[in-house]
Design a protein around this nucleic acid. Structure first.
Lengths: 204, 204
DNA sequence: TACGTTATTGACCATACGGTCAAAAACTTG
DNA sequence: CAAGTTTTTGACCGTATGGTCAATAACGTA
């Protein structure tokens, strides 16, 4: 009996996410959101509660989407895990060298959060862990395959890849071009090859 | 004959930088700046021109300071270049795992800039290049020493280290602790040891 | 077709923001 | 000690922000 909504929540969250990705939470105005989503202010408010809550929704969606993308990219059974990571990193290099103004909502949340208590912080922290989990899974496969040493620290390597990709994102924002970013990605990947070499060089 | 100022510009820029590092450009209010610097609004405006200009000043100072710190950390002649980088990265891991809410102004500028034309973007881009230059210098020494292969791509490795440190900064914000961050730094450093190994593993 | 429920609309509000003005104060020099 | 210059002070301003209200519209159901 109630009047039905004219919109799909997921569409609204997605449009809003676009706005937030370009402007950030603080700099995005309610008007931007109204324009982008097509909803009235009050409808937005009814459905989500406010700018911040809407951002949180978009953030969760964004992080799930990012995790899903990575998981899928690294989850093919028909290719070697290390090759999948390689391809993934190269794709990231290209993506981050695009000239659009988007910044992942996780990065934005991390930078705009006001403290560790802040929901922005806790949600994006969870996102980082999700992402690291996706890498870890793939790395674990590689280890089982013997492509990584048995004593490789899969957990820290996973976090390492998250760090590198976040850094590449920032560098892309700074205008670092596709060629350099690709070289950086390739550098980053060498970690997976040189695992055993550490002791030898350290000794000199 | 003019009335002298009551403040040193560098002090003001430094206090303002503190505010910006914690809140960012958009979220820092003029009142925050007035309170932190001790100056009146109008004095601030006379001396610097406005919030944005003040941020730009703080950003330049911050990036010079960061470059100076890295250059100094990597410039000792009495230690092996690679050892210096190692020490530096481990120190960064500790710094970034601190719980304070500071974010480097370069990162903030990159995220808050509205486009490639934006002075925020151009200045922080220059900062990234300065920083990469500092790493490159040290890596070049290492190459001359024979600690890196003669054909190592010093330039991209330098950018790689900038990317990793930026990523570590973000991870620190996400609450990743000192232990994990240190492990990540050590992972990142393996790149310098495994340089020659690439072909061998790729072949399998 | 009338009722109940909820969405939508657009006007409205208080606030706090970045920025400005004009008067007063403080210092140096002649 | 007075003139001249610049800083400082604190009140002031227009705007645009995030958020709210009350009236209206639209739907499903009975």
């Amino acid at each position: 009996m109630p009047r039905p909504r004219k919109f799909r929540e997921s569409d609204v969250v997605s449009s809003a996410g676009e706005v937030f990705a370009v402007h950030g939470l603080a700099a995005a105005t309610l008007d931007d959101l109204v324009r982008a989503t097509g909803l009235g202010k009050q409808s937005l408010y009814n459905a989500f509660g406010g700018k911040r809550e809407l951002f949180l929704r978009a953030l969760s969606e964004d992080r799930d989407e990012a995790t899903r993308a990575v998981t899928e990219a690294l989850g093919h059974d028909d290719a070697l895990p290390l090759e999948q990571i390689r391809g993934h990193m190269l794709r990231m290099a290209i993506e981050f060298s695009s000239t659009d103004r988007r910044v992942s909502l996780t990065t934005r949340a991390l930078v705009e959060s006001t403290g560790a208590e802040d929901s922005l912080s806790t949600v994006s922290k969870a996102g980082i862990e999700q992402l690291a989990g996706a890498y870890a899974q793939c790395l674990e496969h590689a280890r089982e395959n013997g492509d990584l040493p048995a004593d490789a620290n899969v957990q820290s390597l996973a976090v390492y890849f998250v760090a590198v990709t976040r850094g590449m994102e920032l560098l892309g924002r700074a205008g670092v071009g596709r060629g350099v970013l690709t070289a950086v990605a390739l550098d980053a990947l060498r970690v997976l090859h040189g695992q055993r070499m550490e002791a030898a060089d350290d000794a000199r």
